[in-house]
Design a protein around this nucleic acid. Structure first.
Lengths: 212, 212
DNA sequence: TCGATTACTGAACGCTGTGTTCACGAAGTT
DNA sequence: AACTTCGTGAACACAGCGTTCAGTAATCGA
């Protein structure tokens, strides 16, 4: 056991952090109640009907909050959606590093596949879809979801290389894509179902190659 | 040289086919002029401003056609978009089969990457994004774009197996994903640019594996 | 206690796009 | 001719967007 990589998905700074700080702004402070209400409403609507149902008007109405207030703190629909997603699907996924790279990858990928097979997967698909026409959402998705996962995976793979379990001349970025991109691909382009045995197959073929 | 696989992307049946048929419908025949005008207008708008600009109203206006007529023949925005895409980006991509699987894959993947790097790639990304909330678009995309490519690739890979260039126990579906999904992934989730050298790396690693 | 400052509200607004209805004329069939 | 289907323009109700406005609420420093 070499330790454990923990991926923390932080949302926008909590208000408690702000209000406890010394340098308080003058004037009425931002309402934590409102913030929570908006994100909860957005998360509910996302679960119920996806991005289509999560309109700004619906969020404001369900949260019992003025539409103006929502627009004040979140610039776009995508921003609300992703904040709600990370607030309520706060996934602290641990990346095991037991020393057996194949097994560690298998655990990690299976967990991701299970997440993708459920409601969270459908929402993630819609978020990525929406990101195609929302640059702000795209960068947020990269910073808060993709980058931390890749960082953790890269670290584990580097260790495996040091242990001699992987070729030292591997292109890690391409290698990670060959492992994980198929999951995203099948999530977004469902040419084939997300078979629970897919991780095993992907890892075996990625490690051993295709030549006889 | 073992021959060539040609992938033909057929759009909705051309009107010329219909009108030349014997069993003509009674009544005023559908106007080919209108159909062309709609698809051209849609393609133009797609190129200019993506899906966001390609609204039904804009298409009808630019085509000089009644909005009702557009709705009569195409059920949704996605349907118009994909018809326009395949009508004006009619890509007859040939899949070489020279006997050297690595080289053939490289040619094919490089061609796809070049396409993805240009305007067609941006539009494809938006189409896939839109497909997340448009089931009809999703199936059309699978039938007209994904399936024919995978069929051709699968055939080439089977031949390679017969020639002994690839392991016989390969999971071809997973293998194809490991080759091509990274391209789609980087197109949709641009965590890293679509490097022209990516195909070479992907193919090398997929064929040779990651173990030392 | 009193401004000053910032947060939130409700109602309304103009705008754009969706998807539909209607009555009418156009272009083919038998 | 009668018949059938196609295309048109105008109008419609509906929904969501993003914004403006006047007014109220909460917290500051003095």
């Amino acid at each position: 056991m070499y330790g454990t990589f923990t991926i923390e998905y932080r949302s926008t700074a909590r208000l408690s952090d702000v209000t406890s700080a010394i340098d308080r702004k003058p004037g009425r402070p931002r309402s934590e109640r409102v913030r929570q209400a908006v994100l909860s409403a957005a998360a509910e609507l996302l679960v119920e009907g996806g991005m289509a149902a999560m309109t700004m008007e619906a969020v404001a109405a369900r949260a019992g909050v003025s539409k103006v207030t929502v627009y004040k703190w979140w610039p776009s629909r995508g921003a609300v959606a992703i904040d709600a997603y990370f607030e309520h699907y706060r996934q602290t996924i641990t990346f095991p590093d037991t020393g057996d790279i194949a097994q560690d990858l298998q655990r990690q990928m299976s967990a991701l596949l299970r997440a993708f097979s459920g409601r969270a997967g459908a929402i993630m698909a819609e978020l990525i879809g929406q990101a195609q026409t929302d640059p702000a959402l795209s960068t947020t998705l990269l910073d808060r979801w993709i980058a931390p996962r890749r960082d953790a995976t890269r670290a584990v793979l580097r260790r495996a290389i040091e242990r001699g379990q992987l070729r030292a001349d591997l292109d890690l970025e391409a290698f990670m894509d060959q492992l994980y991109a198929p999951l995203y691909f099948r999530l977004l382009v469902p040419h084939r179902p997300l078979d629970p045995r897919l991780p095993r197959t992907l890892i075996r073929q990625a490690l051993d190659g295709a030549r006889p």
